[in-house]
């Protein structure tokens, strides 16, 4: 790691700890009182993805808490698949568009959106509806299929990942907003906040070869997303992450928002009827100090927007 990267990490983790009321490593047993007693996690249900996001981000202290004036913001949805929004494989486009607009409303200078798609990028961006939603909200779609956009950075404290090639926007943006969609996953058991970050990495094959769970757990050591908004409106309960038929899907109409990706994913594992401990990368990430799996001890705000 170069000096600049180190300071950036220090700054990011420091500010994250201050702002989120997130304690340092191994000391989350007793939650310290947050600045304004903001919840660690907000769970919203019974609304459209946009309604749920609006209610959720307000309960989390508003977008201004995460996005400062004049900043470059990366919104990272899941655009991995050449599928329509109704098939529940990619993040809901309306939600992505709303997050982009919220970031601009909070004063962002530019909101960039990209994902290293599994299938052909052009068709994924198009069919998922995300490209249009982002453009309609003045966001900027970036390609993630060119290797020249990726930079090799060290992973401090990584065992499986010593170095990783990361998309420049993930490294250079002032704020990263992770907007995954909740799905079951054959290899990772589930995909939500942590697994979604594989979409800013060039060589995913290496992760599969050398230990998928350990790699997923270690990657946020490079940088943790500032906010995670997990789309659980349509949830792929089985055959994920691609899905085979509509029978894999369940209309859950939920959303989970949290600055802590491990906490958000723990709640999401429950939604998929899984034991969070069975999702091996969650305990591994917790042990690396990237977040907490203890839903009982963290403050959770549950909202229903049905009206």
């Amino acid at each position: 790691m170069n000096r600049r990267g180190f300071f950036r990490l220090l700054l990011a983790s420091g500010s994250a700890a201050l702002l989120d009321g997130l304690p340092g490593r191994r000391s989350w047993a007793k939650p310290p009182p947050g600045p304004a007693a903001l919840p660690d996690l907000v769970a919203v249900k019974d609304g459209s993805p946009v309604q749920m996001f609006e209610a959720g981000i307000e309960a989390l202290g508003g977008m201004k808490r995460f996005v400062k004036k004049g900043t470059l913001v990366l919104v990272k949805p899941n655009i991995g698949w050449d599928k329509t929004p109704i098939e529940g494989a990619d993040t809901n486009p309306d939600l992505v568009g709303r997050v982009v607009r919220a970031a601009y409303d909070a004063g962002a200078r530019e909101v960039a959106v990209c994902d290293h798609s599994v299938e052909t990028e052009k068709s994924c961006y198009e069919r998922s509806g995300i490209e249009k939603a982002v453009r309609d909200n003045q966001g900027v779609m970036h390609t993630a299929s060119r290797r020249s956009d990726y930079r090799k950075v060290p992973v401090p404290g990584g065992k499986v990942l010593k170095e990783v090639e990361v998309h420049r926007l993930y490294l250079d943006s002032d704020v990263v907003i992770n907007v995954p969609i909740l799905k079951s996953h054959g290899g990772g058991r589930m995909t939500a906040s942590l697994k979604n970050l594989m979409g800013v990495v060039w060589d995913r094959s290496y992760w599969h070869r050398h230990g998928l769970h350990q790699a997923i757990a270690e990657f946020p050591l490079v940088r943790k997303p500032d906010l995670n908004v997990v789309d659980a409106y349509i949830v792929m309960m089985e055959n994920g992450p691609r899905g085979v038929s509509s029978e894999d899907l369940l209309l859950k109409r939920m959303q989970v928002l949290s600055p802590d990706p491990v906490l958000a994913d723990t709640a999401c594992a429950r939604m998929l009827d899984m034991k969070p401990e069975d999702v091996s990368y969650l305990p591994l990430a917790q042990a690396l100090g990237l977040g907490s799996m203890d839903l009982a001890k963290r403050s959770i705000r549950r909202i229903s927007v049905a009206g």
């Binding site: 290899g187 094959s205 599969h208 998928l212 992450p241």
Partner: peptide, 11 residues
């Protein structure tokens, strides 16, 4: 070790 790269992409 878990992998599932093939399962992931199978349509």
């Amino acid at each position: 070790k878990d992998c599932a790269a093939c399962h992931e992409v199978c349509p």
